[in-house]
């Protein structure tokens, strides 16, 4: 039997894809344009704006900061998130239900509110160094991803496997590292990647916590755009895009993307 697809449906689907992919194509085009302002279609082709990204020292500097924050913040978040997810999966019956929801609060609260309150409490209230408060802020906004994704893995983990290890003479803490962690590895990697991408792209929390001398890449992009409306922005955006795609490609190769949607 041949199913007939309605032409309107095809048109609609095409439109959705155009809407999703179109801006990305435009931005690639704009980044290659040989004009001093953002334009599409590109006039002439040049890689000048890519050079420019690295010529303006603020870009590599903030890139490095963003990278540090993404790795450090996510790592910090995992240190809280993995034990939390473990406890909630292992002692599901004994623990109150709302506990799981608390860890999702950072996505539920408007980020702008979160950013402001973090600035008020940490940067101003406690007079914390900028980098430290940024690190904590990023750890907080990525925590829901860590807890949820690792938690999903742990929920399908048969804890009698852990008990088997213990009964064979493996102390509890060691059983966690030798038996539990290796079997939820996929969840941890997935959580790490989601958290990493969230952190790299964050604006609303970072904008409150950045300060003199310390900024992140998205904030730098905004700052640059306020002064110069040139294709450098497009170039840096394309670079950011390719990093994300590269990360996703690695995930797809090693683990398959489907588990992200689980």
């Amino acid at each position: 039997m041949k199913t007939k697809t309605h032409p309107l449906l095809i048109a609609f689907a095409a439109l959705v894809f155009a809407f999703l992919i179109g801006p990305l194509i435009i931005i690639i085009g704009a980044s290659l344009s040989d004009s001093s302002f953002l334009t599409f279609p590109p006039r002439g082709l040049t890689l000048h704006w890519y050079e420019n990204v690295f010529a303006i020292s603020a870009f590599p500097r903030t890139m490095w900061t963003s990278f540090q924050l993404a790795v450090g913040g996510t790592a910090l978040s995992m240190c809280i998130g993995i034990p939390a997810a473990y406890a909630m999966a292992r002692y599901r019956i004994q623990l109150p239900r709302f506990l799981g929801n608390i860890y999702v609060l950072p996505i539920l609260i408007p980020e702008i509110v979160l950013g402001f309150s973090l600035m008020k409490s940490m940067a101003i209230g406690m007079d914390m160094p900028i980098m430290a408060s940024l690190m904590i802020g990023h750890a907080l906004i990525v925590l829901p991803y860590c807890v949820r994704v690792v938690g999903a893995s742990l929920n399908s983990f048969d804890f009698s496997i852990e008990e088997a290890a213990i009964s064979l003479g493996c102390p509890r803490w060691k059983a966690f590292f030798t038996v539990v962690l290796p079997n939820v590895r996929a969840g941890i990697i997935a959580g790490f990647i989601l958290a990493f991408i969230t952190s790299i792209n964050d604006v609303s929390v970072s904008i409150f916590l950045t300060g003199p001398g310390v900024s992140t890449l998205p904030i730098q992009i905004l700052a640059h755009m306020e002064q110069f409306f040139d294709p450098t922005i497009a170039s840096v955006s394309v670079l950011l895009m390719f990093v994300t795609v590269a990360v996703m490609a690695v995930v797809e190769r090693t683990l398959g993307l489907t588990f992200l949607t689980k």
Partner: peptide, 20 residues
């Protein structure tokens, strides 16, 4: 005595083999 120090061989309903 903690469980890991009891030296007991245990066979589970779900087998509980280490998948990795």
């Amino acid at each position: 005595l903690p469980a890991h120090a009891r030296d007991i061989g245990l066979v589970f309903q779900t087998y509980a083999l280490f998948p990795h």
